[in-house]
Design a protein around this nucleic acid. Structure first.
Lengths: 225, 225, 225, 225
DNA sequence: AATGAATGAGGTTTCATTCAT
DNA sequence: TATGAATGAAACCTCATTCAT
């Protein structure tokens, strides 16, 4: 009769858990901390999720669903391959900046070494794999990309670059790595200059990645724009 | 102070620890298991390393050193950019097939979220970042690649692809992801057919990645070979 | 105050609780399971009983009342000591076969180690103790049993045997123990042969226990029948 | 090389655990309390026993072994059935007075309702069952007991009485029950009068139980003494 | 008044680290 | 000095009890 945990509280629980897991990973995250963060009791978490791992998986599913949603929105209605890529890249950037914890959850899946990995991978990668392959296959048929391109493998390489882009904006190590490559000092705060510099850098990354991709795919500029 | 452990034993300890960490990650790996695997006592491990984390870091350093060594050997003496790339790709494949645990250690670094990340990244990525940047800058000067290429960012994208290649051969999630992209069933064993099929697939990946890269870099075929 | 629970529901609650407690004991039984079994809410149980222990005690009282009722019915109107014994033995058997949970509840009292034990024992054992003692004292006066019999202690020994008989039919350990003594395999099911074999065995136990008792009590066969 | 837990400490651990389990039962006993009682750490308990249940079983085994040892010593070398019975009864009394916790452990087995019960029963009861059966069969062959006695069932009834005797000295509920039957007030302390009264009562129980048994078994006085 | 979801104390168990031998 | 058994803090999870609806 009475559902004490409102949808808002359930959402809050997931968000709190994603933050905790995103910071510490499955093992180091403590259910009691998640309870505190979300203002709920330990008991109620175990009412909704059988154990810590089940909660982790729910967080994964939630995070991945958001990632996918963003990706799908980004390419929806795009007819040009290059502009679809641009949309995806920009979507990656803004999503990862806003929801770093979700990106980190995604990254944590990749560290798993158990038997469930196959299931996760199928659920998460299956859709994008198909999407990109079809995108490239169609572009090849239409003569917009190099004719010797293997849609299967190019889809993989393309996704490699998008994944790394995600991680570079959401995971500290990859962030640091990007900084090293770009040869810049750590941003100290969030003042106006930093924000502007960051936007500039983001823009530079977009342009260069598009350049890299258009070369890789052998995109005929004229045909696309 | 610590004379009793021969270099061979130290090497053995690191190898055992890398295997254990590579299988289970930092949290799930047990120091006592590492002791058993290496035939040493728990006590002596703590004589050499302050704590589990310190041992983990030593394993990271060791793994990364091997990775780097392999990478450097691969490009040594290569004058052509494309053939350097090919060497690197093939080195990735064979190293990851042989030393999956080392690759996984490398991958574990990226899950770090603490303050030490910067130090790690600097040590590990600094060198390759510089190497690739110089490689591309030189190629641009010599007119062997597209003139509008930004050596800094292209180095990053190139390393993205190599990292993902590593992980695709060493980490279960990424392995599974590659399988999904390539649309193939899980290899059942190590019989002759499997081995041959795997070699074929590896070769296909090398060729397509080189195609992807040469397009991306705008490599002038004639100038390189 | 508590009007809403009909006598039928109260009875059902007790029966459900006795089943749950009989299966699992006080600690392992869950109030929520009892609520489910009885179709009531957890809340209403706590309206009627202060806590799980109080409910357990009510179950004890109820079970013991039934046991006693059965015992009293069995001896009512019996003039011969031996036939009173026989009635009690048969009553034990059939009651325990039908209401094993009640027998187990009774058995659980005996595990108590707290201060309330005296109160329980007084309530439960007081009546039978008096009953048996008077039974034996009367038989001695009438010259139907050995004259050196101590009614007090013989009542205790007699009750010992009846208690053990109860438990042997209601509690798994004692059941198994009886099987070991009787040297028989575990009954596999409830088919006709099993049922017949079981009845035979029950009958054998009755006859031998009567033999044992009549010897112990020094019953003069002629005087009793 | 170094077994820090000496046999004495292991013995102490078992004794402490038996006391704790004997007082509270499996569920209510806390491993941490056992650790405190024995002056050991929680961890070392889990080195020696896989979990609380395993420790409990070890305590059972230990207790039962002692009980059996005492029983076997009691009948060893006794040629007369009646004097063997007397020895057993007196052994029960003194053992239970000294090691009440062991008796309670034994009693706790009988509350179990799980599948392991059969195994326990076999181990514990198997030996005495055979012993008593043979004792009675031999006595019947020799014409020392009634010829219509069924050794199997009489062994069971005899063991019933011994078990109840044990419990009456070791378990509070049964103790209280005996007091009710005997119609005496609770002993207040351990002063001289109490001790003497207790010894008197013990003696009375021995004699009456022997009387009861000799009647039940139809022992020919002349043949035995 | 009845419900049953939420609470949170408390128990079991693990394992990094210590330290007596 | 090297060992590896002992330590004990910390985390998961359960479930008796409460209380908002």
């Amino acid at each position: 009769m009475l559902k004490k945990l409102t949808p808002e509280q359930q959402e809050l629980l997931l968000r709190s858990a994603i933050e905790e897991f995103g910071e510490k990973g499955l093992e180091r995250a403590a259910v009691s901390t998640i309870a505190k963060r979300s203002g709920l009791s330990v008991g109620v978490i175990y009412k909704y999720y059988a154990n810590k791992e089940a909660l982790f998986e729910a967080c994964l599913a939630h995070s991945v669903a958001m990632l996918r949603e963003v990706a799908e929105k980004a390419v929806a209605g795009e007819t040009s391959l290059l502009s679809a890529c641009e949309k995806l890249i920009r979507a990656c950037q803004s999503f990862a900046r806003e929801h770093a914890a979700y990106v980190r959850m995604y990254h944590f899946i990749t560290t798993r070494n158990d038997a469930d990995v196959a299931r996760y991978a199928q659920t998460i990668e299956g859709i994008t794999a198909g999407l990109y392959r079809r995108l490239f296959a169609k572009a090849r048929e239409e003569g917009n990309v190099r004719p010797d391109l293997d849609p299967t493998l190019f889809a993989l390489f393309f996704d490699d670059l998008l994944m790394m882009l995600h991680f570079s904006y959401g995971c500290r190590y990859y962030e640091e790595r990007m900084r090293i490559y770009l040869g810049e000092a750590e941003a100290t705060g969030a003042d106006a200059t930093d924000v502007a510099a960051r936007a500039d850098q983001d823009e530079r990354i977009v342009r260069q990645l598009l350049l890299f991709l258009s070369g890789a795919l052998g995109i005929r500029e004229g045909a696309n724009r």
